[in-house]
Design a protein around this nucleic acid. Structure first.
Lengths: 148, 148
DNA sequence: TTAAATGCAAACGATTTGCAGGCGT
DNA sequence: ACGCCTGCAAATCGTTTGCATTTAA
């Protein structure tokens, strides 16, 4: 299951790259596959190591360069999650916010139309033209609550 | 107006430090004053330069160490605002979210009880125990919209 | 063919740390 | 007096860049 024809109709990241004029090289294919397989939220180091498993010759610089290019092209999005270290995910999905577990580090996504409305409303009230937004809720996931 | 008895009843940062067992040294007093005078949202470099104006002998390491200690003690909070570089502010105020202007960099604060409720609600729906949260809205402030 | 992509290592900027001396309690 | 605090400079960490070589289109 390496290329996974993707959920009926959805394109793979590398296909999106090509469509956006980003050259599809062997290293980039590997990086895209890593991102897709992971389900998102990997940091640079994680991408690097997973990619290195597929192709020993890949270098960190390539990972940094590739992620930057894909981000600038709008193929992926960078998140920060409180700490430093960017994490990356595909924005082909709908907009969503994050639940970040401060105990195990797990990141869950959620969508709330009501919340989106509120963001719009607050922006308008402040005569602010909203272009993007980010909401992160930190706490304990269900599993970590059980474990105490 | 160097020490500014603070808004009736509110303590100064350095007083909070002492209460939390953080030693009140001359350098730390200066750093606290800088943070208070600024109204928040300074990054390390800004704190360093403003502090240096008051005391030429202060070093960067001390600024980093002091901010870290005060953050760990819960005297101040760190924010990231999309980029890297942490910004610091006093959490003695009520919780608030941020409107970050992507053009001029200005950061406005806002409070919305309705939004706070929504965050609680979403957390519960996901069986997530919310401990803290962060909402940042990126876009253009009123001024930058006028300027085009 | 030709510009873009890559690995390597050096460069870089921000933050941290070891150490000898200074200062708060 | 004691242990924490400080400045300094060196060390470290994550990220970027220059260059010679390889590769996609």
């Amino acid at each position: 299951m390496k290329k996974k024809k993707a959920d009926a109709g959805k394109e793979t990241l590398i296909e999106i790259c090509q469509k956006k004029g980003v050259r599809a090289t062997s290293k980039r294919k590997i990086i895209c596959e890593v991102l897709e397989k992971s389900g998102g939220h990997l940091n640079v180091e994680e991408v690097y190591h997973l990619a290195k498993k597929e192709d020993k010759s890949i270098g960190v610089a390539t990972v940094y360069r590739t992620l930057k290019i894909m981000k600038d092209a709008g193929v992926i999005e960078a998140q920060t999650f409180g700490q430093d270290h960017s994490h990356f995910e595909s924005p082909t999905k709908n907009h969503h916010d994050h639940l970040v577990c401060t105990s195990c580090g797990k990141i869950e996504e959620f969508v709330s139309d009501k919340l989106e409305e509120m963001k719009e409303k607050v922006s308008k009230q402040n005569r602010f033209k909203m272009l993007s937004h980010k909401l992160e809720i930190y706490g304990l996931c269900a599993d970590c609550q059980k474990k105490g």
